[in-house]
Amino acid sequence: MKLHLHPTVEDHRIAWLAAAAVSIHILEALLPSPLPGLKPGFANVITICVLCLYGWSTAAWVSLLRVLVGSLLLGTFLSPTFMLSLAGALASLLILWPMTRLPGRGFGPVGYSLAAAMAHISGQFLLAWGWFVPHAGIWRLFPVLLSFAVLVGLVNGIITQKVVKHLHD
């Protein structure tokens, strides 16, 4: 049986962008981390770029494909790591959706990136707390990770801003 695919331009675009995001995701996974969840999240630069350039639904595809394919390649599919990753991505997308609907000048890459980073870590924590470790002790870790998320979100937002500007020019 032969499978016939008729990919659209949109499909191609998603595939390329997701591939780029997955590459960054995997490279990051190789970095040593002092704490689980402490990652720079550079893959999100791609997500926010896509959000700014092509809109929310394309960004959602790229983001979720990144989580899925990344986990398959790293061998963490359906593991807690994957679940946490997915929870973070879903939480980010959830907060980004209303933000893109704001009238006027609205948010720029920095606002998106920062909000996404904070939503990401909060989503992961809620999942970890509700499912993996139903114990209040885990919240002692939260401030550290949240502060880190703010820092990373800010840095990634500024990078994204430069990339988007560069692509526009």
Partner: peptide, 16 residues
């Protein structure tokens, strides 16, 4: 950065 961005930065730092 837009005004909304700045608001997000403010809220983020406060929350952290």
């Amino acid at each position: 950065m837009t005004l909304a961005d700045k608001a997000v930065v403010f809220i983020a730092v406060l929350a952290a």
